[in-house]
């Protein structure tokens, strides 16, 4: 902590450690935001465990696995992009960041096809098909859309943030000595990835 406070007088607006601390606190609030949903999932899974099992069989495990691989790869390219920036390899960093954004886009495309297929089978909240099913299955889809939907919003926000970072790097406002913004965006992206890592088994694998 102390090595930073010496620089404080010259750089009133530059405190990388503080910036990272703020980011971690923010990520903590994100965890709690999803935490509410995980809590609800747990309560309903206990209450309707049989129906949850049956409903989960409808989900496409192939797309889910593929999306997991995509997100994990994007987390890797994100981390590599930061390392490349630290090693002063700007072009490589830009390329890796662009790959991350593209992978995120790929994730959303997959998600789109997955959701449309569900809608095609009438598996959406308020549909007659779902209303005819037992209440536990209805709730499974309620939780499914709520949690993957909120996650998808986070993916979109992540893409926007990463696009900004791309612009910042190309304009040299993120450099090899001042890359805290990129690092914090990376932290955010890893969180988005991590949440999916929990969503995937809860919805696709526990059947």
């Amino acid at each position: 902590m102390n090595n930073h406070s010496e620089n404080f007088e010259e750089h009133v607006h530059r405190d990388d450690f503080g910036a990272k601390m703020g980011m971690w606190l923010f990520l903590f609030t994100e965890l709690l935001l999803f935490g509410g949903l995980f809590l609800l999932y747990m309560a309903y899974r206990l209450q309707y465990s049989h129906e949850f099992h049956i409903a989960a069989r409808e989900l496409n495990i192939g797309i889910g696995t593929f999306n997991t691989i995509i997100l994990l790869t994007s987390s890797m390219t994100m981390a590599l992009s930061i390392t490349a920036m630290r090693l002063e390899r700007k072009t490589l960093s830009l390329f890796l960041l662009a790959s991350t954004i593209l992978l995120a886009f790929g994730f959303l495309v997959n998600k789109f096809f997955e959701w449309s297929a569900k809608f095609g089978h009438g598996l959406y909240p308020g549909s007659d098909v779902l209303l005819d099913k037992p209440r536990g299955e209805y709730l499974f889809y309620g939780m499914y859309y709520a949690m993957t939907g909120l996650h998808a919003i986070h993916v979109i926000v992540g893409m926007i943030i990463l696009t900004f970072m791309f612009v910042f790097i190309s304009r040299n406002s993120i450099t090899s000595t001042n890359y805290i913004k990129l690092e914090n965006s990376g932290l955010y992206w890893h969180l988005v990835d991590l949440i999916w890592i929990f969503l995937f088994p809860l919805f696709y694998l526990m059947r």
């Binding site: 935001l33 935490g35 949903l37 909240p125 709730l139 939780m143 859309y145 709520a146």
Partner: peptide, 26 residues
């Protein structure tokens, strides 16, 4: 954040009836 997600769920419930807080839907 906990009340944040709770509030959002009520809004979503009103718009799309996910059933999460609606006793009629389980």
């Amino acid at each position: 954040p906990v009340v944040g997600i709770t509030i959002i769920l009520v809004i979503v419930e009103r718009a799309f009836s996910l059933g999460i807080f609606d006793p009629a839907l389980g």
